[in-house]
Design a protein around this nucleic acid. Structure first.
Lengths: 347, 347
DNA sequence: TCGGGTAATGTTATCGATAACATGTTATCG
DNA sequence: CGATAACATGTTATCGATAACATTACCCGA
């Protein structure tokens, strides 16, 4: 069998030669810059069309020191959260004319992180968006290494740090809203199933639960909460444990919707009526949560928007850097909203 | 305030100069090629370390006509399916030393498709993976345009076409397994809620339902099926309609788990016992489906694996192209598996 | 009429690396 | 002992584009 015929790339030189002009003129036509006579422009454009010429972004990036590409570092793409964020990033990037170079982390080894960043920089990305969650001290490298990175880096879902730009959902406020809502429902014994407490986000949610209850003069002892790992199955475990350690609980704030799903199921199995005997509030507002039985009241975080703002922000930083202006690095929060559904509707 | 100090890129020249050798020697050290004396090697390596030199992949790509980057075109990233596939792609790409350049489609306008491909080619991707579903005739361009693309392209979840490499879950077989299972359970009136029938995958699943029932001499009239759009809410609609048009239905094969979720809920609301009065089987095996009430029997498709194989395949095609060998373009199927859970367990 | 601006195009240098070729130095061998 | 191979390094061309500068022609106003 013959080798697959791979057509040779058509370069600016081919166009120039065919059109009988210099490459510079072709470049001028392609970039709609400066002076080209109408006649020449048309001739060149015709040749471009005929040959099917497309400029090499690669070569352009090299000379311009600018690639119109953003690096995106993600973790846990198989979960719905990161991919919704990525969706927002992709949309906005497209709108602003950037492409995305994606790297997925499978661990937080510091060497690995260095390598990932280097490989992005080696490809001349104009900026980097960090979409990996802060867990334990897996972000400590940030403080030491950030100034060695030559392009803007924006962190998502990271605890705000001085002088480092970041955007996150206000998990604390979300939790506050959830608890406030439960209090408004007249609930007085509110338990909590948290995500893994190594996660900054899980911690923030728990803090919201804790502080709001304390402010209302309610108790938040360790018997009133349990820790899961975000998965439905861990939620089930945690709920069973909680039923034991906090038997007269009349409401529960669950760290995410997946875990809340098993709470609903287990409650159902045991004949605990939701919301009458147990009022349930989740977090995240995954699309399915509106179709749980009963439908789940939850805190909705707009991850799509998070992604979009991230791109907007990085691009602003890039442009500021180009113009030699400086943007003050800031941490920003996006406010979540409470979606009230059957699991907390007391008639 | 001072402009943010952006450190100038350290190039191979800087290293060469500092180490007192030619750039070529540095290049040799970096690529562990051919002859370099130990002494020189060490000296260069030390300088590389000191200056923190990292070669520009961009420049290398330009001269080598090879970028070690794959283009990935996706659609509907915000849904769990595509992102699990992407996850598999990311993992394998990393393993094989490739980066990913991602473009998300928001429609299937043919011009837009052309632009997306061009923008990937302009960045010298070595191959392309197409992760957008086949809907209606949104893939007709493939037959006409494929030979104009200068790098290997692999399609996922596309109807097999002659001479065009593709990989897909065997949706038809998955459906066959589901129906066979329901028949084994002694069910005789099996309904179906399909995905949007414009989708090739939805069609295949429906075909599996249809042909398997017919083969067993059962009826598959239009009253026995309804069409949803994959969403839970459409599933609810379709189920209600089906209850009406097919009142003595004793089992139902639902096109995906999200729609099955609302079937379970609506059945519950109406006091239809699952699985005794209505046996339910879904498709996809989303993580939550094991925690539905009752837990859902479903057809599991391994999208992660799909992604991994896609990368493996494209890379093989790339290497074959390099070696001027040719690989015969083939369409491949991945077999799904049936996961039996409570919603079909008849005691 | 001549200097200077605008228009139109070409020439050369450059981005950061590697390919291809050239050169010089040792070792090896018949 | 000279030829040949292996080793070690340097020089120049190249990838595909744009930046920076140069050139030419023409027009206009002082």
């Amino acid at each position: 069998m013959f080798p697959t015929e791979r057509r040779k790339r058509i370069t600016i030189k081919d166009v120039a030669q065919t059109a009988g002009v210099s490459t510079q003129t072709v470049s001028r036509v392609m970039n709609k810059f400066s002076y080209v006579s109408d006649e020449t422009r048309q001739r060149v454009e015709k040749v471009v069309e005929q040959l099917g010429y497309h400029p090499s972004t690669l070569a352009r990036s090299l000379i311009q020191q600018r690639s119109y590409t953003l690096g995106v570092v993600t973790f846990g793409l198989k979960y719905i959260g990161p991919s919704r964020t990525l969706n927002g990033i992709a949309d906005k990037a497209d709108e602003l004319g950037y492409m995305l170079l994606i790297k997925e982390l499978d661990n937080f080894d510091t060497n690995r992180i260095g390598d990932v960043i280097d490989s992005l920089l080696a490809r001349q990305v104009d900026g980097i968006i960090w979409v990996a969650p802060e867990i334990g001290n897996n972000h400590t490298w940030v403080d030491e290494r950030m100034d060695r990175i030559s392009v803007p880096v924006l962190f998502l879902a990271m605890r705000p740090r001085h002088n480092i730009p970041s955007i996150a959902t206000d998990n604390y406020q979300g939790a506050v809203m959830a608890i406030q809502h439960l209090l408004d429902c007249g609930r007085k014994k509110i338990g909590h199933i948290s995500g893994p407490l190594g996660w900054w986000e899980a911690n923030e949610r728990k803090r919201g639960w804790c502080e709001t209850l304390n402010a209302a003069d309610f108790d938040t002892s360790e018997q009133h909460c349990a820790e899961g790992n975000w998965s439905s199955s861990s939620g089930e475990q945690a709920f069973i444990q909680l039923l034991d350690s906090f038997p007269d609980m009349d409401a529960i704030f669950v760290g995410n919707d997946q875990m809340a799903l098993s709470v609903l199921r287990e409650a159902h199995r045991r004949g605990i009526r939701v919301p009458e005997e147990l009022t349930v509030v989740g977090f995240d507002n995954i699309p399915e949560s509106a179709f749980f039985y009963p439908s789940l009241t939850t805190v909705s975080q707009d991850l799509q928007l998070l992604g979009e703002q991230a791109v907007q922000n990085v691009v602003e930083m890039i442009q500021a850097g180009q113009g030699n202006k400086s943007i003050i690095a800031q941490s920003r929060f996006i406010q979540p909203t409470l979606i009230v559904r059957e699991s907390s509707k007391i008639v």
